[in-house]
Amino acid sequence: MTGTSKTTASLKVTLDSWESLFRAQVAVMRKISAMEEFNSLSMREYDVLFNLRFCPGGRSRLVDLNQNLLISQPSLSRMVTRLEDKGLITRESDPDDHRALLLSLTEKGLALQQEIGRQHAKHLHELLGDAMSEEEFREMQRLTGKLREAVA
């Protein structure tokens, strides 16, 4: 039991709710992946830039960055190489652990992340802004936060 719930949900309600959330995510992600801002950079690549931008100090070790992404460690390593080859991120030695590398955005990477982010925010609002009221969106944030806490 977590949060303010007094009883445990039934198996059927748990599964039906999960399926509903998952199907909604699939439908939304299909629309998002077709958005024009992801013509120059894939959604997964953008997600790496987005997460790096908001890491403490703007830097992250690969293993720590991977905690926020839905991608395997080997796939992320290959993606990091591609993003570095494009001049969007850099790697440097971690002063606290010389075996590890710290990743950070280059100026070019930051500019691209901000450009795509502005377009993405606008397009997301156009796609989803009328789907629910502001109160419903806040409730969705509360409920999805509760789910994240339950599995953390």
Rank of each mutant, 00 (worst) to 15 (best):
G145P: 13
L88D: 08
T106N: 03
S133F: 00
E136V: 02
K108V: 07
E107Q: 13
E126V: 10
I71Y: 02
L101H: 15
E135P: 02
D130L: 01
S104A: 12
G87I: 10
G87R: 11
G109T: 01
P74I: 02
T90V: 06
Q113M: 12
L102S: 02
D94G: 06
R78Y: 01
K122R: 08
F137Y: 01
D85I: 13
L76I: 08
L103H: 06
E107M: 11
L143M: 11
G87M: 03
T90A: 09
S93Q: 11
E139I: 00
V80H: 10
R78G: 04
S75K: 10
K86C: 14
M140C: 02
L128P: 02
D97T: 05
L76F: 04
K146G: 05
L102T: 05
S75G: 07
G145S: 04
L110T: 11
M79P: 12
R82S: 15
R118M: 12
G117L: 01
A111V: 09
G129Q: 07
A121F: 13
R91A: 04
D85A: 14
L101C: 15
L124I: 04
R118P: 03
K146I: 03
T81G: 09
G129I: 02
K86S: 15
E115P: 00
E84Y: 14
Q141P: 07
D94N: 09
H125R: 10
K146W: 08
A121W: 02
I116H: 02
K86H: 10
E136I: 10
M132E: 05
P74G: 09
T90H: 07
R142T: 01
L76W: 08
S133H: 00
A100I: 05
T144D: 03
L128Q: 01
M140D: 01
R82G: 09
S93E: 10
E126A: 13
K108L: 13
Q119A: 11
G87C: 06
S133P: 01
R78W: 04
A111Y: 09
E115F: 07
L105I: 10
E84M: 15
P74F: 00
R91M: 14
Q119M: 11
Q119K: 06
A100C: 12
L102N: 03
